[in-house]
Amino acid sequence: MAQVSDDTLAKTSIDAATEFVQSFYTALQSGRSTIGSFYAPTPTISKILFNGNVVADGPSVQEIFTNQMPAAHYEVQSYDCQIINLNYPGPAAAAEAAGKPLTGMAAARNMSLLVTVSGSVRFGEEREPGDLSNRGFSETFVLVPSGETGLKGRGKKHWLIQSQNFRLVV
């Protein structure tokens, strides 16, 4: 891996977590048909858990949210991230092994991240202002680089979910 400063790594990981959290929870609320695209291909997924129940893969998560779950409103109250592996053995590492050394942001994006999120979720519609049907949740993700390059937006996801653990809390 090309030498990347600690500041660049920190900024890249924070930007990745922010972009991921904003887009993922928006999709859970209003873009459920896109949820499957947030997940790494099945062979690389280690576990997806929802309240202790194993879910097979990203398309299965999408099916649950599309066909079984009521409308939901997520309010993220906090999130944090930590770099797990600075040289993740993904698509960028394969390019580097093929003699195309990574530089700049490509090198900084060649990492895996642990992202923790907490907040509240309300399933169904709010009955009245101040409705107490909100439930707290805690969620942990392992994100890996997708290998996508190019401009932000335009449907490109730089980070994919490799592992996820969702838990409703008191």
Rank of each mutant, 00 (worst) to 15 (best):
Q162T: 00
A17E: 11
T66R: 13
L9W: 09
D15L: 01
S118W: 08
A10W: 10
G36F: 02
G104N: 03
S13C: 02
T66H: 08
V4F: 05
Q77D: 14
G52P: 05
L86I: 11
T12W: 00
A16M: 00
H73F: 13
E148N: 12
A98H: 13
T8H: 11
S163R: 06
T149I: 15
V115N: 00
E19H: 10
Y79D: 01
A98C: 13
T34L: 06
F123W: 06
E139Q: 13
D15F: 00
T149P: 15
Q68V: 07
V170D: 10
I64E: 07
Q164M: 07
K47S: 06
A108I: 05
I84Q: 05
G104D: 05
N51V: 02
R135Y: 11
E75Q: 13
G147F: 04
S146Y: 08
I84H: 07
N134R: 15
Q3L: 14
L102R: 11
A107W: 05
V76F: 08
R109H: 08
Q29D: 11
N51D: 03
V55W: 04
T44E: 05
G99E: 13
Q22W: 03
A107R: 10
T140F: 06
A92V: 14
S13I: 04
R154S: 12
L132W: 09
S33G: 09
S33R: 06
R127K: 15
S23M: 03
V54C: 05
T44A: 01
A94D: 14
I14G: 02
N67L: 06
V144I: 09
L132I: 12
G36N: 00
A98R: 15
T140P: 05
